[in-house]
């Protein structure tokens, strides 16, 4: 199809540019705010050109934190968030790839039922089952632990569904060929299914890492020690101070830092799974 409509193109690009502007501008303002000192932001003299306080702000945020508020360094919070997000993402992938493997390749009684039960949990997000989950985690003494942060969130119907759909597209002959080649169920899983699932794993990792990183309600409930705080909660606590002025430059620096890992994950993994999508041929 030959299309030559300069005006149409202009409108299309304008719309896109407007969209980018709406999304990106607040991010930019946050970045700029992270490069000024507290006074400049407070008296409203902040310009849209980055200032010269960036090294001071980022150093303070990462290693000292807002001493007057939560007193926790953001570096520590990032470590907490990172452990939680990685744990959730990897845990979800592990659990869902194994359950999809079971549901697709094994013939056991009530296989369909098992699948539907997994499917139904899609309708029960964390918020719905939060009280019983909290009770269990508390009774098991997992409050203020990484296990408590991660474990209740790793069951994933979405992931299981995704892997199941993918496994269904793999020709049966591949399973039969590996049977004849002397590979048992686990070896087929390890040598054939997992390598073929790399792109699906990458896609799921991106989605679930961001999901884990952005968790707010669950960490808020089960972490009481400030040393277990995640960065998302940290930002929130910096904004609600009682007696002292909010240190906006630190809050904005924290916001910028909080955005970085998900952005890096997307950039890095996207390359992997786009490459995979182009190359894979079954």
């Amino acid at each position: 199809m030959v299309e030559n409509r300069p005006f149409g193109n202009f409108i299309a690009y304008l719309t896109l540019a407007l969209g980018v502007f709406i999304v990106a501008f607040p991010v930019y303002v946050a970045f700029v705010a992270s490069t000024y000192d507290s006074a400049t932001i407070s008296n409203g003299n902040m310009s849209l050109i980055p200032g010269d306080q960036a090294p001071v702000n980022y150093y303070r945020t990462l290693f000292e934190g807002t001493a007057r508020t939560s007193g926790q360094s953001v570096g520590g919070m990032m470590v907490n968030s990172f452990i939680m997000a990685m744990g959730i993402a990897l845990g979800k992938i592990l659990i869902s790839i194994l359950s999809a493997f079971a549901v697709v390749y094994f013939n056991f009684p009530f296989r369909k039922t098992a699948f539907w039960i997994i499917f139904i949990t899609l309708m029960l997000p964390v918020e719905v089952r939060i009280y019983p989950t909290y009770k269990i985690v508390a009774d098991l003494g997992m409050l203020d632990t990484y296990t408590g942060l991660i474990l209740p969130l790793i069951a994933s119907a979405t992931g299981t569904l995704l892997f199941r759909q993918f496994f269904m597209t793999i020709p049966d002959e591949l399973l039969e060929a590996s049977k004849i080649d002397g590979a048992g169920a686990f070896r087929f899983f390890k040598d054939t299914l997992v390598p073929l699932s790399v792109t699906t794993i990458a896609a799921l990792f991106v989605i679930q890492f961001i999901y884990g990183w952005n968790q707010y309600l669950w960490p808020l409930l089960i972490t009481t020690k400030s040393s277990m705080q995640t960065i998302v909660i940290g930002i929130k606590q910096m904004l609600t101070t009682q007696d002292v002025l909010t240190e906006w430059q630190i809050a904005m620096t924290t916001a910028v830092l909080a955005m970085l890992p998900p952005v890096l994950v997307v950039i890095f993994m996207q390359r992997l799974f786009v490459k995979g999508l182009v190359e894979t041929e079954k």
Binding site: E176, P195, L196
Partner: peptide
Amino acid sequence: DIAMVFQNYALYPH
């Protein structure tokens, strides 16, 4: 102690 050749070859793509 058999070997089989499939219609769609069933080679391991990876």
